[in-house]
Amino acid sequence: QTTIQVRVPYRVVGLVVGPKGATIKRIQQRTHTYIVTPGRDKEPVFAVTGMPENVDRAREEIEAHITL
């Protein structure tokens, strides 16, 4: 297991999390990772935990939302 920090712009935190957390839950299920969402007043950084290859996939999925 490994944990990485995925930093995103403030404006996309809501996009990545999705309505009621649906998007981030879907990313967690698809990539078999555990993702901690940043709090409102915190740095916009997601903490992604899982097997290294799964963590990389989750990071790619999160980063895909940044380019939307």
Rank of each mutant, 00 (worst) to 15 (best):
G21C: 07
G14K: 10
T31R: 05
P52M: 00
E53L: 06
A47L: 12
P9K: 00
H65G: 00
A64R: 13
G50A: 01
P19C: 09
Q5L: 12
V55R: 05
H65Y: 12
E61I: 07
T49S: 12
V36C: 08
T49Y: 09
P44W: 00
H32E: 10
I4D: 10
V17D: 09
M51D: 09
R11Q: 15
R30C: 05
L68C: 15
A22L: 08
M51C: 12
K42N: 13
V17Q: 08
D56G: 09
R26V: 03
R59Q: 06
R30Y: 06
K42L: 02
P44S: 09
T23M: 08
V8K: 04
M51P: 04
V6G: 15
V6R: 06
Q28Y: 10
Q29Y: 02
R7V: 05
K20P: 01
V12M: 14
E63C: 07
E53R: 10
N54E: 04
T67K: 13
Y34M: 14
G50S: 12
T2D: 08
K25Q: 12
R59Y: 06
I27P: 05
V48D: 06
V12P: 00
R26Y: 09
H32T: 10
Q5T: 11
R57Y: 08
D56Y: 10
A64T: 09
P52Y: 06
Q1H: 13
K42M: 14
G21Q: 12
P38N: 01
R7A: 01
I35D: 07
P9D: 02
E43Y: 02
L68Y: 13
T67I: 11
V12A: 15
V45T: 08
T33C: 03
G50R: 09
T33A: 02
F46E: 10
R59A: 04
G39E: 13
M51E: 12
E43C: 02
G21T: 07
I62E: 07
E63G: 01
G39N: 12
P38C: 07
I66E: 08
Y34D: 11
T49V: 07
T49W: 09
L15N: 10
D56V: 14
M51G: 05
Q29T: 09
Q5Y: 15
A58F: 09
I35Q: 04
A22Y: 01
A58T: 09
G18A: 06
Q28L: 04
T31Q: 01
I4K: 04
F46I: 00
T67H: 07
I4V: 11
P38A: 02
E43A: 12
I27Q: 01
I35R: 08
F46P: 04
I35F: 03
I27A: 06
E53K: 09
Y34I: 13
T3P: 01
E43G: 07
R59M: 11
E63S: 02
N54D: 14
G39Y: 01
T31L: 03
